[in-house]
Simulated scan of single mutants.
Amino acid sequence: MVPERNLLADSGLRDKQQSKWVADIENMIAEGPMAIMRLLKIRQAVVASPEPMLWFSKIRMEQEILYLDLWNRCTK
């Protein structure tokens, strides 16, 4: 993303539409991870089978911990 470039100005939206888009995006950022739950397919996947999601999350967390441990050992 280029900071100097205004993507909304190039989109051809009117001022009201631009401010609505900006407000929606700011609300989604403020809401954080719960914004993802608005997406129908993701929400259905989590509700239908939470076990694989929990397993994946656990494995990913373990890998991140191992990586950080290795990184700490290498820097010492």
Rank of each mutant, 00 (worst) to 15 (best):
Gln17Tyr: 05
Ala45Glu: 11
Glu64Cys: 04
Ala23Phe: 09
Leu7Pro: 02
Glu64Ala: 02
Gly12Pro: 00
Asp15Glu: 13
Pro33Ile: 11
Leu66His: 06
Leu39Asp: 10
Lys41Glu: 15
Asn6Val: 04
Asn72Val: 07
Glu64Phe: 05
Asp10Cys: 01
Asp69Ser: 06
Gly12Leu: 02
Ile29His: 02
Ile59Ala: 14
Leu68Ala: 14
Ala48Lys: 15
Glu51Asp: 03
Leu70Asp: 07
Ile29Met: 03
Asn72Trp: 12
Trp55Phe: 09
Ile65Leu: 11
Leu40Lys: 11
Ala35Met: 05
Asn72Asp: 14
Arg5Ile: 10
Ala45Asp: 04
Pro52Gly: 07
Gly32Ala: 05
Lys16Met: 04
Lys58Ile: 05
Glu26Met: 14
Val22His: 07
Asn6Gly: 01
Arg73Ser: 01
Arg38Phe: 01
Met28Asn: 07
Asp69Trp: 02
Pro33Gln: 09
Ala48Asp: 15
Ala23Ile: 05
Asp24His: 11
Glu26Leu: 00
Ser49Lys: 14
Gly12Cys: 09
Arg14Leu: 07
Pro52His: 13
Ile42Leu: 14
Tyr67Leu: 04
Ile25Met: 13
Leu66Arg: 07
Ile36Met: 12
Val22Asp: 01
Lys58Ala: 14
Met37Thr: 14
Ser11Pro: 03
Lys76Arg: 15
Leu13Met: 11
Met1Glu: 01
Lys20Gly: 04
Trp55Glu: 05
Gln17Arg: 01
Arg38Pro: 00
Ile25Phe: 11
Met34Tyr: 08
Thr75Trp: 02
Ala48Val: 02
Val2Gln: 13
Val22Ala: 13
Leu66Phe: 09
Val2Ile: 06
Ala9Cys: 06
Ala30Ile: 04
Ser49Met: 11
Leu40Tyr: 03
Glu31Gln: 03
Cys74Asp: 12
Met34Val: 09
Arg60Tyr: 11
Glu64Val: 13
Arg43Tyr: 12
Arg38Asp: 01
Asp24Met: 03
Asp69Gln: 12
Arg73Val: 05
Arg38Gly: 13
Ala45Thr: 00
Leu13Ile: 08
Ser57Trp: 10
Met61Ile: 15
Arg14Ile: 04
Ala23Tyr: 06
Arg73Tyr: 09
Lys20Ser: 08
Asp15Asn: 13
Gly12Ile: 00
Ser57Asp: 08
Arg14Phe: 07
Glu26Gln: 13
Lys20Met: 07
Ile42Tyr: 15
Lys41Trp: 10
Pro50Trp: 00
Ser11Leu: 12
Glu26Asn: 00
Ile42Ser: 06
Asp10Lys: 11
Ile25Arg: 08
Arg14His: 10
Met61Gly: 08
Met37Lys: 07
Glu26Ala: 08
Met34Glu: 02
Val22Met: 14
Ala45Arg: 04
Ile65Tyr: 00
Ser11Gln: 10
Leu8Trp: 00
Met37Ile: 12
Met1Leu: 03
Lys41Gly: 03
Lys76Thr: 08
Ala9Arg: 14
Met1Cys: 10
Pro50Met: 00
Lys16Trp: 06
Leu7Gln: 10
Ile42Gly: 01
Ser11Thr: 03
Val46Leu: 00
Val22Lys: 02
Ile59Phe: 12
Arg73Ile: 08
Asp24Trp: 05
Asp15Ser: 13
Asn6Gln: 02
Met1Gly: 04
Pro52Cys: 11
Ser49Asn: 15
Leu54Arg: 15
Leu70Phe: 03
Asp10Val: 05
Glu64Asp: 12
